[in-house]
């Protein structure tokens, strides 16, 4: 765990240097576009986290394995943290570029619904005293809530939004290599941070369960 933590800190430092130092300011937005190196990896981690909740919830319902339940619980919590970071950084990015902190655009609204759904998931777990019943209800919600992920991702394509469409995977003028590299470094750093947080949280949940038994 310590080694993973140390590697994560190094990767985050490299991401910070790449995003704030090495990458050039964007032609139209200027320096404020540097928020992308934080905002996009955050939402990526949130997607991965909730996809893990989906898979672990199915595994729990199929096998009633406590390890799958702990993984779903930990991943949902970390996903909520990263969704919060995504919304907050997006709002800060929106003010200088769109002229507003918030607008009820399809992407912003759908990601807020995602955030509230998984916050509800965590509240549900905390509200039910019977551990097995709580885990079962949470698994069902973890599966249902995951259907919101494609809705969030494709909202910018399906509806006319203020939020820009995905720029990495769509055909068009190629992004400068230095921008893509800085983004990739931050993707790796945030993914490592996700693994570190989930591993630590799963370990904590296991020890809490052992102490309660």
């Amino acid at each position: 765990m310590r080694v993973l933590g140390a590697v994560t800190v190094v990767a985050l430092a490299a991401g910070l240097v790449a995003g704030l130092g090495l990458a050039p300011p964007e032609v139209t937005q200027g320096n404020v576009q540097r928020i992308m190196y934080l905002h996009v990896p955050s939402v990526w981690v949130a997607y991965v986290a909730f996809a893990v909740v989906f898979v672990a919830s199915i595994a729990y319902l199929a096998k009633r394995a406590d390890a799958a339940d702990r993984l779903a619980h930990a991943s949902a919590e970390v996903g909520v943290v990263f969704t919060g970071v995504t919304i907050a950084t997006g709002s800060i990015w929106g003010k200088p570029t769109w002229g507003t902190w918030w607008t009820w655009d399809a992407r912003l609204t759908s990601v807020s619904i995602l955030f509230v759904m998984y916050l509800g998931y965590l509240l549900l777990r905390g509200m039910i005293d019977d551990r097995e019943r709580g885990a079962r209800y949470a698994a069902v919600l973890g599966i249902v809530a995951a259907f919101n992920i494609p809705l969030v991702h494709f909202s910018v394509i399906w509806w006319r939004t203020l939020h820009q469409p995905p720029s990495l995977m769509t055909p068009g003028p190629a992004m400068p290599r230095v921008i893509i590299t800085a983004l990739l470094v931050n993707f790796v750093a945030f993914s490592l941070l996700y693994v570190y947080f989930v591993a630590k949280r799963v370990h904590l949940l296991r020890r809490e369960a052992e102490a309660a038994a």
Binding site: L20, G30, N31, V32, I35, H39, T89, W93, P96
Partner: peptide, 12 residues
């Protein structure tokens, strides 16, 4: 091109 470093630092 606007500077906007304040917004960048606030986000980070």
């Amino acid at each position: 091109m606007p500077d906007n470093w304040g917004f960048v630092l606030a986000a980070y």
